[in-house]
Amino acid sequence: MTRPPPPRINSGVQPVVRLQTREPGPAKLHGEHRDPDGRATPETKAREVLKLERARQRTAIRKMNATHEELAVTTQVLLELLSDPAFVALLRAHGFNSIPRILHQRLMERR
């Protein structure tokens, strides 16, 4: 529910004391600015958008780091397995005579 606008005085004289009734609502955050109608200012809106974008980017970075770590572990495990002659013989016995080029390149970079 919005607050009714203050009464207009046609004489051009502004009232000295204006009583403000504030409806209960969410508490303001420290540094949050609102215009007289109670709406957030453009600066506050921009700050909130930047805060959300920062959180989104932090989440993306966390996910990228986790993926990078998983890829490093997987690469290390594959290198260890492919260095075992018994494992390579087992792969060949089941018809796996080659590996994809991109995987081979990545494994050769890690050696």
Rank of each mutant, 00 (worst) to 15 (best):
T59W: 06
L29N: 11
I102V: 13
V88A: 03
Q57S: 10
G38E: 05
H30E: 10
E109T: 11
A86P: 00
Q105F: 06
P36N: 08
L91P: 00
P7E: 11
Q105L: 11
P36Y: 04
A40I: 01
A89N: 08
R62M: 03
N97Y: 03
L91H: 00
R58N: 05
T44W: 07
A46Q: 12
R22H: 11
M64E: 11
A27P: 04
M108C: 09
S11L: 12
A60I: 03
K51N: 09
V73H: 05
V77D: 08
L52S: 08
A93S: 14
S98V: 07
K28M: 08
G31Q: 06
Q76S: 14
L81E: 03
E109Y: 09
V73R: 15
P4F: 00
E32D: 09
T75S: 13
L79Q: 05
S98G: 02
E70T: 10
S11Y: 11
A66Y: 00
V13A: 06
G38R: 06
R3G: 03
A46Y: 02
E109L: 11
R18A: 09
A86H: 08
P15N: 02
P4H: 01
P100C: 09
Q20K: 15
H104W: 11
T21E: 10
A27G: 06
G12L: 11
E69S: 14
A66D: 14
D35N: 15
V77L: 14
G12M: 05
G95Q: 03
T74V: 08
A60R: 09
N65D: 15
E53L: 15
P42I: 12
L90V: 00
L91V: 03
V13P: 00
L107N: 09
K63I: 10
F87A: 04
L103C: 07
G95V: 02
L50K: 07
S83W: 02
E32Y: 01
L107K: 04
P24C: 02
D35I: 04
R101N: 06
A40L: 15
S11P: 01
D37E: 13
R47I: 00
L52R: 12
R92D: 02
I102G: 05
R58A: 12
P26H: 08
H94M: 03
D37P: 00
V49R: 13
R47T: 01
P7T: 14
M108I: 14
S83I: 02
P85T: 00
T41M: 03
A40W: 08
H33D: 12
I9F: 08
E69A: 15
Q76R: 15
L103S: 04
T44A: 15
A46I: 07
A27K: 14
A89G: 05
E69H: 12
T44H: 09
E32F: 05
R110C: 07
A60L: 05
E109R: 15
R39P: 04
R47E: 02
R3Q: 10
H94V: 04
P26Q: 14
V73K: 14
A86K: 06
T44M: 10
Q14K: 15
R56K: 12
